[in-house]
Design a protein around this nucleic acid. Structure first.
Length: 103
DNA sequence: GGCCTGACGCGAA
DNA sequence: CTTCGCGCCAGGC
């Protein structure tokens, strides 16, 4: 039996580098179209952050989950960290926190 | 079981 | 484009 939380974790772990998914899309992929907010709560509660386990296949790349319209959204370790990680994966951010592919 | 809390989303002003 | 308000949902107490 997989709980909503487990499905969300799986979906997020399946996001490849360079790809982004919004909280809403993750919610939908996990089976709850309007649970974007709940997804955020789950990300926040996630202990196995990608930062501390970058090479661990069990790590959860939660920095690839952004808010609607490709706005940055939040991050447990600080939005600063999130920006930095995304920058390494080919994304740059505008002053209004909009993510855009660079180069 | 009920109440409170948000890493959200979206339409309206 | 900015700000507000309200709906939505899982989690933690």
């Amino acid at each position: 039996m997989s709980t909503f939380r487990d499905r969300v974790i799986n979906v997020v772990r399946a996001i490849p580098p360079g790809r982004l998914m919004t909280y809403g899309e993750v919610a939908q992929a996990a089976g709850k179209l309007r649970a974007a907010r709940a997804v955020g709560a789950i990300m926040r509660a996630n202990k196995l952050s990608f930062i501390a386990h970058a090479n661990d296949p069990n790590a959860i790349p939660c920095h690839r989950v952004v808010a609607a319209k490709y706005r940055l959204g939040g991050f447990n370790a600080g939005t600063k960290q999130k920006q930095q990680l995304l920058r390494k994966e080919g994304w740059s951010i505008t002053k209004k926190q909009k993510l855009e592919r660079h180069v």
